[in-house]
């Protein structure tokens, strides 16, 4: 029972971490644009150190949530009927949010927009997109399995042909999104 409770809370922390890491860039952009710098007195002219710290947060959080992926349940993808690259679909939506973050004036408006973004991303248990994963070398694909079910697959592999697709052991982020992490055999 204790083990199950422990895994359950890891799952919830993990989901929250992943959601935060995918929207953290908006906060970073907002802070930098509005020159929010609580450590201004400490660093003085070296304000860019604070900004560098802000910029590194999405990467650090995404990296830790990748580590937590090994607590997710496993699944297998044996056969696919089709493979489609999905990077471009989401990048366009994501860039849209960037412009929203840039044009928001005032902290009240910002936190409202940000809060709603987090809420919608959290409850959307269907798709999951985090551009930092692109930097880490992951690609996003829509694959249709042998049972004609379309799911999103996040993998470092360059997948192109359904015929040469080899069985993948993946982790289930949600019922529609699966990620392939390296230390699985």
């Amino acid at each position: 029972m204790k083990k199950i409770k422990c895994i359950f809370s890891v799952l919830s922390i993990f989901r929250l971490l992943m959601t935060i890491s995918s929207v953290l860039f908006f906060v970073v952009v907002f802070f930098i644009q509005n020159e929010i710098n609580p450590l201004a007195s400490t660093f003085g002219d070296f304000y860019w150190i604070t900004y560098l710290f802000y910029l590194s947060m999405p990467f650090l959080i995404t990296f830790s949530s990748l580590y937590l992926c090994k607590y997710l349940s496993q699944a297998k993808i044996n056969k696919v009927c089709s493979i489609e690259a999905a990077n471009n679909d989401f990048l366009a939506n994501y860039l849209g949010f960037f412009f929203v973050a840039l044009s928001v004036k005032g902290t009240a408006t910002f936190w409202t927009v940000f809060g709603m973004t987090i809420l919608f991303t959290l409850v959307s248990r269907v798709s999951y997109f985090n551009p930092v994963l692109l930097v880490f070398g992951f690609n996003f694909y829509y694959v249709v399995t042998g049972e004609n079910v379309k799911v999103m697959l996040i993998s470092k592999k360059k997948l192109k042909s359904p015929k040469s697709f080899e069985t993948l052991c993946v982790r289930r982020i949600n019922d529609y999104t699966f990620i392939e992490i390296q230390d699985d055999d």
Binding site: A75, K76, N78, K79, E147, R172
Partner: peptide, 8 residues
């Protein structure tokens, strides 16, 4: 089937 994907 042998190649049933549990991801489905």
């Amino acid at each position: 089937t042998d190649n049933f994907s549990s991801a489905s």
